[in-house]
Simulated scan of single mutants.
Amino acid sequence: MRALTTRPRVLAVLLAGTALTFSPLGGQATAKLPADQLTNPCFTPAGASAKGGRAADHREISAAEQKAIEARTAQLLKAKAARGIAVPKGALAAATVPVYVHVMRDAAGNGDVTNTQIADQIDVLNETFAGDESSAAADTGFTFSLAGTFRYNNNQWHKDKQSASYRKQTRKGGANALNIWLVDFSYLGIATFPWDYAKNPGVDGIRVHFDSLPGGSIANFNLGETATHEAGHWFGLYHTFQGGCTTTNDEVEDTPAQSSPTSGCPVGRDSCNLPGLDPIHNYMDYSYDSCYNQFTPKQSTRISSMWTAYRT
């Protein structure tokens, strides 16, 4: 287990759905979801059309769309550079990201997490994006600061129902703010991409199973690395297996191509005949939390570019 320290945080209470007292519910939530019942460890919804963590909202990004996104990103970076908004060559964008955590409890208090768990989750984000879990990991230059914690009692929201509506009602901050909604659903997490922000800013952010936070109850996925994985999408990273065994793959040169997602931590796995073993330790694969330990330097460069293009 990694050592985590508690950081200062802000607690706010909003009323939604059933009555909510002004004394936060304490202790661990009792709802559990075994890892083998998670139908899909992560999915990325279709931006503006995202409505709730179910199959109808799941989409793959085609090769043609992927190419169009890269072209659009290049255009935006060029236009911003012309206006003096650019990162010097060889450098990376760096910022402190305000994080708003929305705890979606049901009327009985299921789905609640402690303030300590939330603080520990912020620590995990800071550790992973700083490259502190491995000597091979890149420091992305981004840090995270808890800007507010909001607790709601709403049976529908707790189960990620009406998600487009509840996100628009509760989201805080601008394009640079990471909103995390903690819910109880059949996934570990769901994320929006930065290039979808302009079309539908109200749903921008990540939804994470509340029991995946540090100290949660989902075996192999309770060290807080799900939020790191989903935040990677929020910054503009694809899965390392995006597009399968292709040279384009995830648009990152130093993540070897892989044909399919990883399960567990199979050292030496090689699912693709292109050079390199599968990057099973990369946060953008589907490995166990304990297996994850790095973003690569080129992923860090992509995060910098996507931040500059879409979130500044």
Rank of each mutant, 00 (worst) to 15 (best):
W157T: 06
Q156N: 08
A147I: 00
V124Y: 06
T143L: 06
L146W: 00
V113K: 10
L125W: 15
A130N: 13
A138R: 09
G148L: 01
R151S: 04
N153M: 12
T114C: 14
A164H: 12
N110I: 00
A119M: 06
T143G: 11
K159H: 07
T114G: 14
A137Y: 05
Y152E: 04
Q156K: 08
K159V: 04
F129W: 10
N155A: 00
A137D: 04
D112V: 13
N126Y: 06
D139I: 03
T140M: 07
S135I: 09
N154H: 13
D160M: 03
K159F: 04
A136Q: 15
S163D: 15
S163P: 08
T116S: 07
Q156P: 01
A147R: 01
F142V: 00
S134R: 01
D160N: 07
G148A: 03
D132Q: 09
V124W: 06
D120S: 08
F144E: 05
D123Y: 08
F142H: 02
G131L: 10
A138N: 11
T114W: 12
I122G: 11
S135C: 05
S134W: 05
G148I: 01
D112K: 14
A119R: 04
G111S: 14
R151K: 03
V124H: 02
N110H: 02
G111H: 12
T128H: 15
I122F: 13
N153F: 14
I118R: 05
G141Y: 12
S145R: 14
S145G: 07
D139R: 07
S163G: 12
F150T: 05
T143D: 08
S165C: 01
D160E: 03
A136W: 12
D112G: 14
A147Q: 01
D120G: 04
T149C: 07
W157C: 02
F144V: 03
T128S: 15
N155C: 00
D132A: 10
N115R: 15
